[in-house]
Design a protein around this nucleic acid. Structure first.
Lengths: 167, 167
DNA sequence: CTAAAGTTTCAATAATTACTGAAACTTTAG
DNA sequence: CTAAAGTTTCAGTAATTATTGAAACTTTAG
């Protein structure tokens, strides 16, 4: 496998994986491309490499910027915008974990709470609903807190966590 | 909010969440329904409550069984099959985590390895590709091992992990 | 100011994914 | 064995989601 094939394989794998955990293919592919690029890329270069339209590129770049994964760069004396992604994998994971927590886990926790705090009318069905949704709520909340703690230290959270868990 | 509303809200939230992390809506809803039900349900009952077709119910139930989340039950003297889900949230999480590791993380790790082990032709581009995909590979592999370790103890893995990480 | 370069928006359309329903199949009671 | 009860399959269709491309908009050099 040569460079071009390997790069393509990486971008495609990342694209597929992305859609598995809720970000779309193009968005994941753009991120992958920037992740292995030696310098920031312009919109033209991205469109060209990934064979996607200008509109698609623009929208997905904006989402990536929203997530805090990609940043705009300006080259001296150039009008065009260039884009680059966070290159440190741990920092990248931190950003993604925080965003997912905020966008998905926390709203779910909130809804679960609304469900399990309904008034108990004494029937077995209601009792079961309350019991089970409360269990799920507590798990989700704890997992979320755990995730945030693990990931909230900018440096070496991974090594630290592993050390603690494995001993 | 009364019982019926709360139950519906739970099923819908779970359905939406499910699609966010890669299982489809109907599948997540069936699981949710069984999760708060006081007894195993027949296919008819599931179809009826969720207003989905027989075919859809059958296929998604099978997937849930494949995942090991749902089991068939037989009632004495009855021909019909009844279905129930794992009711313990920690056990449920364990099963899901294991399946996701096996189906998604491990194949991704494998592909990343194929990419970062290409022969280094000495160019900056190749070096960057190797460096970055190796970093991602190592992170994914470590995270996967970590997840499996955390979750591989049937009892109280959550409490134990929290204890270790928070101190 | 204008023109050129660049970016964003969004309605139309393509691609993907999920769902239905009826037919085929399987199992079991009699 | 047959008929009834139940389950599965899958081609067709519906619903959803992603993508295009052209027009509108923004910015800046001159």
């Amino acid at each position: 496998m040569n460079y071009t094939e390997a790069k393509l394989k990486f971008i495609n794998t990342w694209g597929t994986l992305g859609s598995l955990w809720g970000i779309n293919k193009a968005m994941a592919q753009i991120q992958a491309l920037l992740f292995v690029s030696t310098s920031p890329l312009s919109m033209e270069e991205i469109m060209d490499e990934l064979k996607i339209s200008r509109g698609n590129t623009s929208m997905n770049l904006r989402q990536l910027i929203d997530w805090g994964i990609v940043t705009k760069e300006f080259k001296a004396g150039e009008r065009k915008e260039y884009f680059s992604t966070e290159k440190n994998v741990q920092e990248l994971t931190r950003i993604i974990a925080k965003e997912r927590s905020r966008r998905e886990i926390q709203p779910a926790v909130k809804t679960l709470k609304e469900v399990y705090t309904i008034t108990d009318d004494g029937t077995a069905e209601t009792k079961e609903l309350i019991k089970q949704t409360k269990a799920l709520h507590d798990l989700a909340e704890t997992a979320d807190i755990m995730l945030n703690k693990i990931v909230s230290h900018k440096q070496n959270w991974l090594t630290k966590s592993i050390f603690k868990i494995f001993n």
